[in-house]
Amino acid sequence: MIEVESLSLHRAGLPVLADVSLRLPNGGVTAIIGPNGAGKSTLLHCLAGLIAPQSGRVRVEGVDIHRVREAERALLLSLLTQNPGAVPRLSVRDLVGFGRWPHHRGRPGPTDHALVEAALERFDLLPLAGREVEALSGGQRQRVFVAMAFAQATPWMLLDEPLSALDPKFARDIMERLRDVATAGPGVVLVLHDLSVAARYADRCICMKQGKILAAGAWQSTVTSDLLTRLYDTPMRLAEVDGQPVVLSA
């Protein structure tokens, strides 16, 4: 369970997060949505323990995430950040292998190797395992970083816009695997811009606007055309095409 208690953060005098509180039960896919500058990414980084809030706290599985050492935190949360800066010259297997680093701290055992192979298989990376990450396409790269987070085998995976700049096919690939992952084990929390993707895959939503939570809860019962319209300040419509939910800007 992730418990957030009145989280506040100001930057240059402006509130980025204003008294944010929420609870997320384990498992499932939770989408953080909202307009640009709503504080989605900041909230995710606060959950990950990478940005310290000015007040409030985040507890993951009962542990105050801003008061534990990195080594301990890395056993609770894994993270995918927006466009990793420099792409390392590592093989796919080596990079995914670093997902196990918090567990073995430099001395991988048989379990670590097995879990790396399992992560590679789960994200269809076995055929690419010996290739260098640098040599892959954007979509494949993103899958490698997601697989690294998955190999970390934490109760929570946090992903900041995992689909940015991905073609629909790659986006779908990643989302379907994440949904499979989330039904079996870790909770997946991600920042999403594509609302139709969110509508299709998310079990829960956190709707953010101007640093506050406008609404949060099960996607089905929370998200309506009216809510989306208020959230984005532009007419939005939740519809259905061939039994799949889609979100249109009306």
Binding site: S78, F98, W101
Partner: peptide
């Protein structure tokens, strides 16, 4: 060596992989 490789992944990744950055 491993830790220096992790530094090369950037601060966010290094820290979320449990490195005291």
């Amino acid at each position: 060596a491993d830790r220096i490789t992790l530094l090369g992944l950037g601060e966010d990744y290094a820290r979320s992989l449990g490195l005291n950055y």
